[in-house]
Design a protein around this nucleic acid. Structure first.
Length: 423
RNA sequence: GGAGAGGUGGCAGAGUGGUCGAUUGCAACUGCCUGCUAAGCAGUUGACCUGGCAACGGGUCCUCGGGUUCAAAUCCCGACCUCUCCGCCA
């Protein structure tokens, strides 16, 4: 949730931040509503205060066996005034709230200003494979090895769904087990297995709603949503809670299926595994103290990178420019894996610091041990990592001349010792 | 899904129209006492909104939303959740 006080106190900062993010909001109208709301509140509070003291007097009159009728008459009068003001106050409160929910987070100062062209490659890891043959795409490889059945997935559900088979299915399972094991035993994350259906409050809490409802799968009868990422249920674990300072930082990791409608994004990038409506992902979520959140972001990216290093897959890390940042993010690194078959860098992870943006929406705070103050926590999350695209990277990077795929060393134990996928 | 019971502060648990943000117990914190620990004694302990430079005020919150009333934790209606029994089911 956007902090109204920041708009009141520092409107230029907000205006510039929104501009950098290519977002607009009528800040003047928000401030106007805010003023009107506070004026109404002051008036209402005064009336309520009168009611409270009158009420006390009435009870004393009753106790003293005196006639409370005249006092009751004045109370009735005040009470009527209150009932006429209350709906106004409530209405403006709601209007203000929904306006604030539509304002995106502001970018951090360290984020380059501009559109996606301003994204910066921060570092590149590993060597791009050199093949003595023309590398095939993951689609050709998967169909040749009969480990993914695109046609039948379409028959069962619809376009852009996938059906893994045999070693393909096993590879999927091996990958998320390997990732969960790495994050829990080497990076200190606590494993979570959350629901994949969440309610509206949870979706608002992490910022998917109200703005992006059309991108979400929603149940017709229940007002529940299929999660687009485990970020939603996992961040909402601590919604409406006050944590103690000693509990922080909290690190969670979760494997879930993720569901995205990808409305309006049909085009050339949608073949194969690259953009599908359901994919598996291992997510990393952190709740931290504000002063540590940017250090925590660097560590988070490092944890995601580690997966690629262990898999020995070349990747690069991008720092996203302001215009490419998502709604809730203040700063974001993308990890892209190089896939020689499609000859592209594919986004396989996105690691963001949301600062207190989600924490304000979801009402997640912590109490200072010394200060005794309650302050919103900072939340972060990152993919560690997204599976369908990691499979693309593995199939295309580890393909051999005769159409087989070598299994990366770290995955072999998870594949029952299998060293390569053959027909 | 059907029938019944219930949802009060960190927890336990009173309160059934007016002086109730709410008795009390536990837990926690701060003093005192004590060789140490325990016990004991005294006090403190919620969140949110809002006025004010401040000192210091005012308001809201007894699951949530409506209603009755001058006045609601308390009465009425609805939603959600929990428990018990029955049905169904992995």
């Amino acid at each position: 949730m956007f902090d109204i006080k920041l708009i009141r106190d520092n409107i230029d900062l907000v205006r510039n931040g929104l501009k950098a993010k290519n977002a607009c909001a009528n800040l003047e109208s928000i401030l106007e509503k805010d003023q009107k709301r506070r004026d109404l509140l002051v008036e209402l509070d005064q009336l309520r205060s009168q009611i409270n003291s009158a009420n006390e007097e009435i009870s004393q009159l009753i106790k003293a066996k005196e006639d409370p009728k005249p006092k009751i008459a004045t109370m009735k009068e005040i009470s009527n005034k209150i009932s006429s003001l209350e709906p106004q106050a409530k209405k403006i409160e709601e209007e203000l709230h929904s306006l604030l929910l539509m304002i995106p987070n502001l970018p951090h100062v360290s984020v380059p200003v501009g559109s996606a062209q301003e994204n910066k490659v921060v570092r590149t890891w590993g060597k791009t494979r050199v093949f003595d043959f023309k590398p095939k795409t993951h689609i050709e490889i998967a169909e040749h090895l009969d480990i993914i059945d695109f046609k039948r997935a379409t028959k069962i559900t619809g376009s852009n769904f996938i059906l893994f088979k045999k070693a393909g299915a096993r590879l999927e399972r091996a990958l998320y087990n390997f990732m969960l094991d790495t994050h829990t035993s080497e990076h200190g994350y606590t494993e979570i297995f959350p629901p994949v259906l969440v309610n509206r409050e949870s979706m608002i809490g992490t910022g998917q709603l109200p703005k992006m409802e059309e991108d979400m799968y929603r149940l017709k009868d229940e007002d529940l949503f299929l999660i687009p990422t485990a970020e939603v249920p996992v961040t909402n674990i601590h919604r409406d809670e006050i944590l103690s300072e000693e509990e922080l930082p909290i690190y969670y990791t979760a494997y879930t299926a993720c569901f995205r409608r990808e409305a309006g994004s049909y085009g050339k990038d949608t073949r194969g595994l690259i953009r599908v409506h359901q994919f598996d992902k291992v997510e990393l979520v952190k709740f931290v103290k504000p002063e540590t959140s940017y250090d925590e972001l660097e560590k988070l990216v490092g944890n995601a990178e580690k997966i690629f290093q262990l898999l020995d897959l070349p990747y690069r890390v991008l720092l996203l420019a302001t215009g490419d940042l998502s709604f809730a993010a203040a700063k974001c690194y993308d990890i892209e894996a190089f896939s020689p078959g499609v000859d592209k860098w594919l986004e396989v992870s996105s690691c963001s610091n949301f600062e207190d943006f989600q924490a304000r929406r979801a009402n997640i705070r912590f109490k200072g041990k010394e200060t005794k103050k309650t302050t919103p926590v900072h939340t972060l999350n990152g993919s560690g990592i997204a599976l369908a695209r990691a499979v693309v990277a593995i199939l295309e990077n580890y393909q051999t001349k005769d159409g087989e795929v070598t299994i990366p060393d770290v995955l072999q134990p998870y594949m029952g010792g299998m060293k390569k996928i053959s027909k």
